[in-house]
């Protein structure tokens, strides 16, 4: 589904990604974790070309991301941001319908119904006509997930989707993500929610200093990490 080979990204003199290889299979849930500054967010942002890469290739469904029209590529990759980034000037419903209507994916008269269906799926059908400022953080993030799903992407990328939330709202967003995973969505999640990783992930990738140091199943990752950096990281988050 997504293949990285030799991906490098530099910001000025700083090498943010130092040769990333790896593959995310269809319907697989990969959790990217690691200390801050390790390149996790940068890596998923390269997949939909929010960041350009300097070396290597990234293929999504077999097509090199640089060979495809940028907008078409992005339309088939759902992206969920840490800060939600809902459009504050339109209602939750219109946040969901905007792109599929403009891009001709949904006929205008069916848009409301289809958006309501998606909002119901994230448990927010009754709040469809509210503006983002009238929603809690957790609700906003769920709208943002519905908005990304509206383009019916085969892949969803999550960039620390619960890091900006109050603790009591983390659960509702994770529940939606678990539902997606159950439905067979291919997902790459940058997250510090180790409970989510343990429960939902098929693979955990541990990153540090722009490299993937370890790739393991959650059980292996949490019980028998092979890399010393992983052991340090796990000890640090357990102590917290």
């Amino acid at each position: 589904m997504i293949q990285f080979s030799g991906v490098e990204k530099r910001y000025g003199g700083y090498l943010a990604l130092r040769g990333i290889d790896g593959e995310v299979a269809r319907s697989e849930v990969v959790v990217l974790c690691g200390p801050s500054g390790s390149g996790k967010s940068t890596l998923i942002r390269t997949v939909n070309r929010l960041e350009a890469i300097d070396k290597g290739t990234i293929k999504v469904e077999g097509v090199d991301v640089r060979d495809e029209c940028q907008n078409r590529l992005r339309a088939r990759i759902g992206f969920v941001f840490q800060q939600f980034n809902l459009f504050p000037h339109i209602s939750a419903l219109r946040n969901v319908t905007l792109a599929p209507v403009l891009l001709g994916k949904w006929p205008k008269r069916e848009a409301r119904e289809r958006a309501l269906h998606l909002l119901n799926r994230v448990g927010l059908g009754s709040l469809a006509d509210r503006y983002p400022s009238q929603l809690s953080g957790g609700q906003q993030q769920r709208v943002a997930i519905a908005r990304a799903l509206a383009m019916e992407p085969p892949v969803m990328l999550f960039d620390e989707p619960t890091s900006a939330l109050d603790p009591e709202m983390v659960g509702e967003v994770l529940a939606v993500m678990k539902g997606l995973a159950r439905d067979g969505m291919t997902m790459v999640c940058v997250t510090h929610e180790m409970g989510f990783a343990r429960e939902v992930a098929d693979k955990v990738w541990f990153m540090a200093e722009g490299k993937v140091l370890e790739r393991a199943s959650p059980t292996e990752f949490f019980t028998a990490p092979s890399h010393p950096r992983t052991r340090n990281f796990l000890a640090a988050i357990r102590a917290a």
Binding site: Q70, N71, L73, R74, F79, F81, N85, A99, A144, M151
Partner: peptide, 17 residues
């Protein structure tokens, strides 16, 4: 905020939309 443009572009909307 830059996130507004990023969110819109991530949905596949182009510069003009």
């Amino acid at each position: 905020p830059r996130g507004q443009v990023e969110a819109s572009r991530s949905l596949g909307l182009g510069y003009w939309s």
